[in-house]
C-alpha cells in the first residue's frame, strides 16, 4: 500500500503539470495563462519533493510561485488589450510550429525513458547542506557573478521603463498642457 503512494503522486503531478502547461499555451484569457503557469510551477515543486530535494522545492515555491508569477501578473495588468477572436491569439505559422515541436519532442521523450537509476539512491531530504557547501565553496565565483547579473538586470529594467521627467517649464512661460517631455 505504501509503495503505491509514490507512483500515485507522480501520476497526479504529471497530469497537473502537463495540463497546466497546455492551459498556458491554449487558454483564451491571458490571466488564465498566468495562473495556470503558477499551478504548473507549484506542481514542479511537488516533483522536487518527490525526488527528495526539499530545499529546491522551497526555493521553487518562493521564487517561481511567489515572485515570478506576481511579476508576470503585473505585466498582464500593464498591457491591456482589446478582446478579440480566439484564432487571433495564434500566429500564422501555428500548424508548422506545433508540428515542429511535436516532431522534435517524440524522439526526445523516447530517449528520456532510456535513462535508468543508479544502483544506490540518495536518501530523501537533507539536501540543504550539500547545496550550501557547493554554493559557497565550489561555486563561490559563479555565485558572485550571478549577483552581478541580478544587479545589472535590475538596473536595466529600471532604465528601460523609466519615464523621462517633464521638461522644466521656463519661468514665465505660459503653461501648455499639451507639452510633454520626450517619450521613450
Amino acid at each position: 500500500m505504501l509503495q503505491l503512494i509514490e507512483p500515485f503522486m507522480f501520476g497526479l503531478l504529471t497530469v497537473s503539470i502537463l495540463g497546466a502547461g497546455l492551459a498556458v499555451v491554449l487558454a483564451p484569457r491571458i490571466t488564465t495563462s498566468a495562473l495556470a503557469m503558477a499551478f504548473a510551477f507549484l506542481n514542479v515543486a511537488g516533483m522536487f519533493v518527490l525526488l527528495g530535494a526539499e530545499t529546491v522545492a522551497a526555493f521553487q515555491v518562493l521564487i517561481y510561485v511567489g515572485a515570478i508569477t506576481v511579476l508576470i501578473l503585473y505585466g498582464v495588468m500593464f498591457t491591456p488589450q482589446q478582446p478579440r477572436a480566439y484564432g487571433l491569439f495564434f500566429q500564422g505559422q501555428t500548424p508548422w510550429g506545433a508540428l515542429l515541436a511535436a516532431l522534435v519532442a517524440l524522439p526526445v521523450v523516447i530517449v528520456a525513458f532510456t535513462f535508468v537509476d543508479a544502483g544506490v539512491a540518495l536518501e530523501p531530504g537533507n539536501d540543504l547542506r550539500p547545496l550550501g557547501t557547493s554554493v559557497f565553496r565550489d561555486f563561490a565565483f559563479p555565485f558572485e557573478v550571478a549577483s552581478l547579473l541580478l544587479l545589472a538586470a535590475m538596473i536595466g529594467a529600471i532604465a528601460l521603463v523609466r519615464r523621462e521627467r517633464e521638461i522644466e517649464e521656463p519661468p514665465g512661460a505660459p503653461h501648455d498642457p499639451q507639452r510633454r517631455g520626450p517619450r521613450r
Partner: peptide, 13 residues
C-alpha cells in the same frame, strides 16, 4: 521533456 516541448510550442505559436 514534455513540459519543455509544450513551452517550446507555446513560444512558437
Amino acid at each position: 521533456a514534455l513540459l519543455f516541448f509544450i513551452g517550446l510550442g507555446g513560444v512558437l505559436v
